[in-house]
Amino acid sequence: MALYEGPVQNLIDELGRLPGVGPKSAQRIAFYLLKAAPEDAKRLAQSIVDAKDRVSWCRRCFNIAEGELCAFCKDERRDATLLCIVEEPRDIVAIERTAEFRGRYHVLQGAISPIEGVGPDQLRVKELLHRISGEGVEEIILATNPNIEGEATAMYLARLLKPAGIRVTRIASGLPVGGDLEYADEVTLGRAFEGRREVDA
């Protein structure tokens, strides 16, 4: 359906391959770019090229990194005895916002999903085992998503890591701050009760 001239159609086709951008949106963005000031469009093009050239996976934790190691692995002030396992780099950002954790991370780049045919071999599990033996890790915190894939991954890793004699913990699950108890589902509320703790007043 090449209705436009070469370069315009190419732009529309390329934009249309982005997630969540349909043909109509692609067309709108393409015409916005054509109308925009040349330096704006060039800046966008240059930032895409820069990001693709300079950003890769951290050699140690598989977070996104500029260079060999990511910012968390380079930072010597971080506690190397604590290792937090997450599914995606975006999860690190969420955990960093809490300012509660000062250890290092390991990104699995996915979760075990039996129904999608994703097993432990497709994740960065082997690399994780290498790290544990070499880096003096004392505690592993499993911070995968609390859905069926994340739970399966956490259980699998716990089974794998427990025999190595390392403390393996799972992040707690419970009620969201600002929510109403009556709307909580049974599983979450049940876990919140299991994980209750004494109040220090």
Partner: peptide, 24 residues
């Protein structure tokens, strides 16, 4: 609304790997 949460299935790797093939 939950009728049966079947929570045990989600909290044991061996159980989950047996439950998922039935669903599939």
């Amino acid at each position: 609304e939950t009728i049966e949460a079947n929570r045990a299935l989600r909290e044991g790797y061996g159980l989950l790997t047996h439950a998922i093939p039935m669903l599939e």
